[in-house]
Design a protein around this nucleic acid. Structure first.
Length: 276
DNA sequence: CATATGTCCTGAGAGC
DNA sequence: TGCTCTCAGGACATAT
């Protein structure tokens, strides 16, 4: 479930590899099916060995390691983690990178279910390969006018619309439910029927919630999969108002019970009293 | 074009 | 206790 706050936390957690020289890149022995990696590991090794890491950046829900003319992208999807050798177990490490003279700072991509991907692109190709027609503006950066215009173009219910990375990049299932609750918008409401005033509030709440979640190093759910780069749980789950709260009394109105519905095969949590 | 559905994968938890 | 079954959801491919 890593969404923008969790991926941002991963980026911050591995930033100490900036400026280090790459000594080794390999796919560890793994009992499970090999990770999706583009192009092959051989080409990646040829391009990156001996190069220095310039910077760590985030593109939507991907971690990017920028290395000279190239960038290596990690897409954690459901259960992936990028960290410096403090993953939950050694069995699900599917990609590893070592640095010259730094035995204790080895980058690992850990992924229990293996749905994640690793991909290398030339810096010059990133726009065309990953952004154009595929990723909207980042949720932390998008201007309100752009946000309103994009959501105003779809008749889909607002909750699934928020999950569409082509509209806004970075929002996932958990934070979409949370932000609709605080903005007091029903998840079923068609996006193009929401008043400008409500959309303004939603935009504001999106920034507040994502930034607060980053402060708390993301949300670790009951399965415990998501960890920070030092293998600690995040703490934003303690601030959830609706996500995973089915049947609990709504923390906001203290009257109605939080409901769980399914939209586009995804769980949505909301309070029918607060969100009309 | 817009929108909906199926698929990938592993492990936790429910139910018997 | 141990088995089988369901479900979690990001994002892409394919269908409508």
């Amino acid at each position: 479930m890593p969404e923008l706050p969790e991926v941002e936390t991963m980026c911050r957690g591995i930033r100490k590899i900036e400026r280090l020289k790459i000594a080794k890149v390999f796919l560890p022995e793994c009992l499970y099916r090999p990770i999706s990696i583009t192009p092959g590991i051989g080409q990646i090794q040829r391009a990156l060995l001996g190069q220095r890491v310039d910077s760590i950046t985030r593109l939507g829900k991907r971690v990017a390691i920028n290395i000279g003319d190239h960038a290596l992208f990690f897409q954690p999807k459901m259960t992936g983690l990028v960290s410096l050798e403090s993953v939950p177990d050694p069995d699900h490490v599917r990609f590893e990178m070592h640095f010259k003279g730094r035995r204790s700072e080895r980058l690992q991509f850990w992924d229990r279910r293996g749905l994640g991907t690793v991909a290398m692109f030339k810096q010059a190709d990133i726009q065309q390969q990953l952004i154009d027609g595929k990723l909207g503006p980042d949720a932390l950066v998008i201007e309100f006018s752009d946000f309103a215009q994009r959501l105003g173009k779809t008749r889909r219910p607002i909750k699934p619309a928020l999950l569409d990375q082509k509209l806004v990049a970075g929002v996932g299932n958990l934070y979409a439910s949370e932000m609709l609750h605080v903005a007091r918008i029903a998840p079923q409401k068609p996006a193009n029927t929401i008043s400008k005033q409500k959309l303004r509030r939603l935009h504001e709440v999106m920034l507040e919630i994502l930034n607060a979640a980053i402060e708390h190093e993301g949300s670790t759910l009951s399965d415990g999969t998501y960890r920070t780069a030092v293998n600690d749980p995040g703490s934003y789950q303690n601030h959830h108002l609706v996500y995973d709260c089915e049947g609990k009394v709504c923390a906001t109105c203290q009257r109605e019970t939080v409901l769980r519905i399914v939209q586009s095969q995804r769980a949505t949590f909301y309070c029918p009293r607060c969100q009309k």
